[in-house]
Design a protein around this nucleic acid. Structure first.
Length: 887
DNA sequence: GTGTAGTATACATCTTTGTGATCG
DNA sequence: CCGATCACTTTGATGTATACTACA
């Protein structure tokens, strides 16, 4: 949808609002809300999240789509200083402006001087104004980078999680379809009888199944039929009938076939989820992976292949498929791209067009498109696909192109057969490789002594190619982050089998705690399905027969053997060849990249070398702390322990110390501070309280970082107003310093309560309770007295008013009641004239009491203050009141 | 085109124990 | 006189992560 907008293609008639539209709107609104919560910050004037910056045309505007558009944000063109947006035909009328409803308050951005290009055609004249921004030569190098805000990060993580869950659910759905007995039966009926004996082979090996896979590969082809309206099972059945389907379907069919032959099989899928970290927003930098990012979720047949929905391709060569499908995907957005059969130069041309078109997109936009599509697909995949399908129908030359192009590719196919038969090995490292997203894992009991899960990619005809998956994925500018095996409605993360550079993906995966918790129940199901019942899962009370027990124990060991295998892979990762990788490597470290507070202890063993730097196990890296910091954890430095590391003080400290010579120098020298490792510490040996005296530090207090820091025989009473109590009882105490806070540019210690000897605890608490009760009673008494007084004043003023009314009635008069009720006059010294204090008009009734000679007085106890409005109300006992606004 | 090291920069973290005037 | 409260220039230096650049 966005692509169409961007290309300036308009909807002649607004299509009926499908569920997809509704979802998109909802997601858009959600994201708008998220973006509006943007945090402050000087650098955040570029206040946006990755967003498809549609060129909002005036035509849309005039049709009212403008207001319907979920994008209620200003076009990013406007607030991206120094960004050139290439002009394209049909886009001249794009408008960059602040949208209605966005005020200066809500949209604080820096506007840059630009020049207004006047529309050069009459056609455009009435459509709007083009505001273009050109970089000055000096600013051309400067890119505006918007760092992801915490909200962005949170959102990206949520999307990542939700997407993961969706893909896991999808994998289970596919897995379930593979168990469909009808599909399995139909597959068996197609199978030449000589392959049926595989079902009886006791120890299956990769070699045994190889001919079967070859047969399958020859008989089932990948295309991208669009049967989105159907359930996956019916799609699978249809693919079986046609002997062609999407890569996902073909892979699923291979799994179904293996299962029909009684092999232990998993359906494995790379979960190509939305990134965990939000994309940074670099204006003006071309998106490198534009084509990769602009892909669907469930429809990719290979990682290289984008927009594979509309294609009927009988070829298996990934390289051919790549060129072909890219071409199709380009045609979707660019109507001028003519797809003909003649030559690959056309493909290149269309690629160029695409590059040009995509070049105007920010990386963030592309990421957003992807995420939006994911979110929408999660709720309305079928609907969305049908929409895309209808889009593809709009393409005039697709079908003719497809048939002729496929003929051409058929010819190429025969030439490429040798390459294909060797799998992807010859092409790994080249971008001409299509890495499959889906494959099967067959448990070959005849491999090794204990059996082995063998990677079988029937789509690309690869057996045992687990080592190539990662390279092929990375060649596609993707990262293999999650490879999940599905069986028995369960799932198991088998990424380790396919990933050798875990350090590269560790930070791109969701925290393992969450992921493990998600997979835990699924892992059990998977384990149970890949052979039988795991002993610990046998229900108490049921007695499994011997056969079941044997099978179960075999599976248990099979499962744990695989776990062990994966664990070994995890712990025996090859040493990275670049130094940077050691900065946060979970297994290895080099001294150069240790943090300030880290040290190698013990310094060894050396596991290898990288660029001349010795590589140590990460387990040898220890965290260091200052003496003070260890103290907070209830640890102290052992006697005679020298510092493990000595660091220079910051210049601030240096200055402070220089200005105050002789003050507070560390024991080990000037301008330095010492760090110690945990191995140099021991539990804190605190002084004991003796004779009711609390041991205090040099400041006469006790630092209570935690309960561990309390001297023996003392307690910490976190009670307000407890100091006077201790003083009154003449009990020795120390103020408890519990931390610091920064106020007015300096750190201020925070005190909470006192530290006293345990033996006085009860006495203090008793006295404190008593004092508090007394205080509360006094407070209550004071409040009551105040209330009484106010009632007295109120009634007095009412009486006075009544008397005045009785005396003078409605007739205006200048006579003054000479006897104001003023019981407290003598007590209150604060007098003020009415004129001085009256800042607000007084009410009409009050005016009747306003007199010329009477001097009002406003006793303090008759004043009330409204904190909300900051208005103080002062009352004269005569009933006159004045309201004063206080600042 | 790719990988690596170095650099720039935004962001996160750590730092850390006053003083004088005024008022009740 | 003493103690409580308030105002006082709302830290800022440094480390770390990450993107970018130059170079092999």
């Amino acid at each position: 949808m966005r692509t169409r907008n961007q290309q300036g293609k308009q909807h002649d008639d607004p299509p009926p609002r499908s569920l997809t539209d509704i979802s998109k709107d909802a997601v858009g609104k959600f994201l708008t809300r998220t973006s509006s919560r943007k945090s402050k910050g000087k650098k955040e004037e570029d206040n946006r999240i990755p967003w498809p910056h549609h060129a909002i045309t005036s035509e849309e505007e005039s049709k009212g789509q403008y207001s319907q558009n979920t994008d209620t944000r200003p076009s990013s063109n406007a607030n991206t200083p120094g960004t050139i947006f290439p002009q394209e035909k049909g886009k001249e009328n794009s408008v960059s402006c602040v949208l209605p409803g966005i005020t200066e308050d809500t949209c604080e951005m820096e506007w840059e001087d630009g020049f207004v290009a006047m529309p050069d055609s009459e056609d455009n004249h009435h459509k709007g104004v083009v505001v273009e921004f050109y970089d000055s030569p000096s600013s051309s190098k400067k890119k505006t980078i918007r760092r992801a805000s915490p909200e962005d990060k949170e959102l990206a993580e949520l999307v990542h999680k939700v997407h993961l869950l969706c893909l896991v659910a999808r994998g289970r759905l596919v897995d379930r379809a593979c168990n469909n007995p009808l599909i399995q039966g139909a597959l068996l009926s197609l199978l030449p009888s000589n392959f049926l004996k595989i079902a009886d082979v006791p120890n299956v090996t990769a070699n045994v199944v190889a001919p079967l896979i070859r047969w399958f590969h020859e008989n089932f082809r990948v295309d991208c039929s669009d049967l989105s309206e159907r359930s996956f099972e019916s799609r699978l059945a249809f693919a079986l009938e046609r002997r062609r389907g999407t890569a996902e379907e073909v892979a699923a069919l291979s799994v179904a076939l293996f299962r029909a032959l009684n092999l232990t099989v998993r359906f494995v899928s790379i979960l190509d989820v939305a990134p965990l970290k939000p994309a940074i927003d670099v204006s003006g930098s071309p998106s490198q992976d534009a084509t990769c990012a602009d892909s669907g979720i469930f429809d990719n047949s290979t990682l290289m292949v984008t927009k594979s929905r509309q294609i009927v391709s009988p070829v298996q060569s990934p390289s051919q498929k790549l060129g072909f499908q890219n071409k199709i995907s380009y045609s979707k957005g660019t109507s001028e791209t003519v797809l003909d059969t003649s030559a690959s130069t056309h493909i290149e041309r269309s690629e160029a067009c695409q590059t040009k078109a995509e070049g105007s997109k920010r990386k963030g936009d592309l990421e957003f498109d992807l995420q939006l599509e994911m979110a929408v697909l999660a709720t309305a995949s079928a609907s969305h696909k049908s929409e895309l399908s209808s889009e593809s129908k709009d393409l005039p030359s697709t079908s003719s192109y497809v048939s002729s192009y496929s003929n051409k590719l058929k010819r190429i196919k025969t030439e490429d057969a040798s390459v294909i038969s060797h799998g992807i090995s010859t092409a790994v490292g080249s971008k001409k490789v299509g890495a499959s997203l889906y494959w099967a894992e067959v448990f070959c009991s005849g491999e090794n002594s204990t059996g082995k899960w063998v990677h079988i990619d029937a789509v690309n005809l690869i057996i045992g190619g687990e080592g190539k998956v990662e390279a092929a994925t990375s060649a596609c500018k993707r990262t293999l982050r999650y490879a999940v095996a599905f069986a028995g409605n369960g799932a198991k993360d088998v990424t380790r089998r396919y990933c050798t550079k875990w350090y590269m993906i560790a930070s791109k995966r969701i925290n393992s705690q969450w992921w493990d918790a998600v997979l835990a129940p699924l892992k059990k199901l998977e384990s149970r399905a890949t052979g039988g019942v795991v002993p610990m899962d046998i229900q108490p009370g049921t007695v499994p027969n011997e056969q079941e027990m044997v099978k179960a124990s075999r599976v248990a060991s099979q499962s744990s053997l695989e776990d062990m295998e994966l664990q070994i892979r995890a712990l025996t990762e090859p040493l990275p060849t670049n130094q940077q990788a050691y900065r946060n490597h979970h297994l290895y470290a080099i001294e150069r990249w240790l943090n300030k507070y880290e040290i190698l202890y013990p310094k060894g063993p050396i596991l290898g070398y990288c660029s001349g730097h010795a590589v140590y196990p990460r387990t040898s890296v220890q965290t260091l702390q200052t003496k003070q910091r260890w103290l907070r954890e209830g640890l102290q430095i052992k006697a005679n322990e020298g510092p493990a590391k000595v660091l220079k003080h910051s210049s601030k400290h240096g200055k402070a110390q220089a200005s105050e010579p002789g003050v507070c120098k560390e024991a080990d020298g000037e301008g330095t501070f010492s760090l110690y490792g945990k191995w140099q510490t021991e539990p804190l040996d605190l002084p004991h309280a003796i004779n009711g005296i609390v041991p205090k530090n040099e400041r006469g207090q006790v630092d209570v970082w935690s309960e561990k820091c309390l001297p023996h025989g003392t307690v910490h009473l976190r009670l307000p107003r407890v100091v006077p109590v201790a003083k009154r009882l003449e009990i020795d105490f120390a103020p408890a310093m519990v931390g610091f806070e920064f106020r007015n540019g300096r750190s201020i210690p925070i005190y909470e309560g006192i530290v006293i000897c345990s033996e006085f605890k009860d006495a203090i608490i008793e006295a404190y309770t008593e004092a508090e009760e007394k205080r509360e009673a006094e407070e209550k008494k004071r409040d009551e007295a105040q209330a009484t007084l106010r009632w007295y004043q109120l009634i007095s003023s009412m009486i006075t008013r009544q008397r005045l009314n009785d005396t003078y009635g409605d007739t205006s008069t200048s006579e003054v009641p000479s006897q104001p009720l003023n019981r407290k006059e003598s007590e209150d010294g604060r007098k003020s004239s009415c004129g001085e204090n009256r800042r607000k008009p007084i009410s009409k009734s009050d005016r009747t009491a306003l007199t010329e000679d009477h001097e009002h007085i406003f006793p303090l106890e008759d004043q009330s203050f409204d904190e909300e409005s900051s208005v103080r109300t002062k009352r004269c006992p005569c009933g006159f009141l004045v309201q004063v606004e206080e600042f």
